[in-house]
């Protein structure tokens, strides 16, 4: 447990050192999407009886929790390939599960912080929604899933450049197709079936439904939790494999 806290505290310390840079960087993408899609394209648009801004903010919450939780992969990669800090963790008397837990917790923390920033930006834009327990549960499960995925990927890649490729192939398409900017049920049936395989689709639907005060689908939460757990176990195995 202490080993896990040490890994987590190190990541928080790094985050603290780069606080203003990180905060500004976390705000850039959501702000651009808000300006371009919220104020620009969606100014007079209504989706399912709500303004497009109200529709967009929960989508951005889901997307940002995904990208920021996944961004821990870059931090791990820099520590592994550039600063070689990973060796310090591997030589310490801590179990691999403690290392994975510490990194995943750091990913979730980053994600929660970015979500808080989006909610603040939303508030400034006059969007106030309901942020109850189910909302935060969806955010945490989504962050857990993508932080676990990040640890897996960070262990599997052989260089920092490979990491960028994975982001381009997995995260960016998901960000645009996972129900962030448009309702998935407006797509053709065949596309809906495909998009329903994306975890972000379920996260976006759950976050959106809960923030609208509706009851989200239980199966989305189960799916996010199950997939997150599977990736967490996989991350543990990947750390074991990364030794050589």
């Amino acid at each position: 447990m202490r080993g896990c806290l040490a890994v987590y505290q190190r990541e928080l310390l790094i985050l603290k050192k780069k606080f203003w840079r990180q905060t500004a960087s976390m705000c850039v993408a959501p702000l651009l999407y808000l300006i371009a899609f919220g104020f620009g394209v969606g100014k007079d648009l209504q989706v399912d009886g709500r303004s497009y801004m109200e529709f967009l903010i929960p989508g951005l919450v889901a997307m940002s929790s995904m990208t920021q939780a996944f961004a821990i992969a870059s931090e791990i990669n820099i520590a592994r390939f550039y600063w070689r800090i990973f060796e310090e963790f591997q030589a310490a008397p801590i179990r691999n599960i403690a290392y994975v837990t510490g990194e995943v917790l750091a990913g979730i923390t980053r994600a929660l912080f970015s979500v808080a920033l989006i909610l603040f930006i939303g508030l400034l834009s006059g969007v106030v929604l309901s942020y109850g327990l189910l909302f935060w549960l969806a955010v945490v499960l989504n962050s857990f899933l993508f932080a676990s995925m990040a640890v897996c990927m960070a262990m599997l890649v052989r260089s920092h450049a490979d990491q960028a490729l994975l982001t381009n192939f997995f995260i960016t398409p998901m960000a645009f197709l996972g129900g962030t900017f448009f309702p998935v049920d407006h797509m053709p049936l065949w596309a809906q079936k495909i998009l329903n395989f994306l975890p972000l689709t379920h996260a976006a639907q759950s976050v959106r439904a809960s923030s609208f005060g509706q009851t989200p689908e239980l199966h989305s939460y189960v799916l996010l939790a199950a997939l997150g757990l599977a990736l967490f176990v996989l991350a543990f195995h990947c750390v074991n494999k990364a030794k050589d």
Binding site: I14, K17, F89, A92, P93
Partner: peptide, 24 residues
């Protein structure tokens, strides 16, 4: 180790402190 594997963003004290935490 052969290569420098310190946290360059952190101070000398913080590097030693994290190590101490890792060793409980």
């Amino acid at each position: 180790p052969q290569s420098i594997n310190l946290d360059h963003e952190l101070t000398v004290y913080e590097n030693l402190n994290i190590h101490g935490k890792l060793f409980q």
